[in-house]
Design a protein around this nucleic acid. Structure first.
Lengths: 179, 179
DNA sequence: ATAGGGCTATTCTAAGATGGAATAGCTGCT
DNA sequence: AGCAGCTATTCCATCTTAGAATAGCCCTAT
């Protein structure tokens, strides 16, 4: 899976409370919530839900309400909860620019929602980025001035920006206590 | 088209010299060439070539060689050349993180290959990123501390890293003359 | 010779993603 | 009743994508 998928994020939302597709859609379209991170079309939400149910991580149940069409409410199963914990505690989060933006932010969002401590999560992400940074720095030594060299410089600049942002991000989530 | 496509880059490669799919594949898999920027599978190259031919931007001709299977050599058509020029001189290049990484680097690569002056191209990319940066800064003022706020901070950090990189990139392509 | 191994070069195929239209239940208004 | 407009889901046609399959060509070993 090279590209981040919303799967675990949806597990997190369902861990917070059982929901149906349309409701999830709202969360992903509100720019002050996950809309700031993912762009998801209607059908994609439902496709993910179907996939998660097939995996056995969630299960849906049709619910009749009296002022709207019937809906399918999904709730997390035990294996789903396990998968979610695994994701939140991923010891080696990806350090790819794209995935930090999408996956790490989602992890933070879900952790906050579930009152899951975020500090360890942030620390692991920083560690992963530092490792990647070191790797790129050794690569830099044998780099030429080709397009590959430019790409490498850009990549390094982006990772460094992320590392600085993570530090600020941490003080924002856990503000230093005043003396 | 939200996601960058290799279409114009391939036009550029064919403008440099007529080629067949397998040959292009090499360029995209060599990490010192475009392999540093794009990841393309076999079938994707051929799919793009088919699409470009349908658009009328390139035309293929089967060529028999005596020490290998016959190949289809593609060359740029006049409309293709026009499209390529348009792309190289795009007055408003995208400032999205992903597209700068992929599309701008490709433009630089192709410009270098075709001995097309890069200075204007770099200037336009910088301008686009500065506009985007300004836009994000005004957004920052009305930003809250939600996930959207964090995402915004990250986005700003990334754009700033890109702007600094572009400056270094420029002095690398056009080194300042020694006094 | 010829069968196989290893290149070059392209096509095929099946699975998955995507956006948007279509469907369908429900309420309230005219 | 009929229609507009909201909620909720499914359907569909199209496009990607990775990898397997096909196939021409050369060389070497038997």
């Amino acid at each position: 899976m090279a590209v981040p998928t919303p799967d675990e994020t949806i597990l997190g939302l369902l861990a917070y409370q059982a929901q149906h597709g349309y409701q999830l859609l709202d969360t992903f379209q509100n720019p002050t919530q996950l809309g700031a991170v993912w762009h998801m079309s209607t059908s994609q939400i439902y496709a993910v839900l179907k996939r998660l149910e097939q995996q056995g991580w969630i299960q849906g149940q049709s619910v009749d309400v009296d002022d709207a069409p019937p809906r399918i409410e999904y709730r997390l199963s035990a294996p789903g909860q396990q998968r979610l914990d695994q994701w939140l505690n991923d010891p080696q989060p990806s350090a790819s620019i794209r995935r930090v933006r999408v996956e790490f932010l989602s992890r933070l969002y879900i952790a906050h929602l579930l009152k899951h401590p975020a500090q360890a999560l942030i620390a692991r992400q920083r560690a992963a980025c530092e490792v990647e940074h070191a790797r790129l720095m050794t690569q830099r030594e044998q780099s030429d001035s080709s397009i590959g060299g430019l790409a490498l410089e850009l990549h390094i600049a982006q990772i460094e920006a992320i590392l600085q942002w993570i530090n600020r991000c941490e003080t924002r989530v856990y503000p230093p206590t005043h003396a």
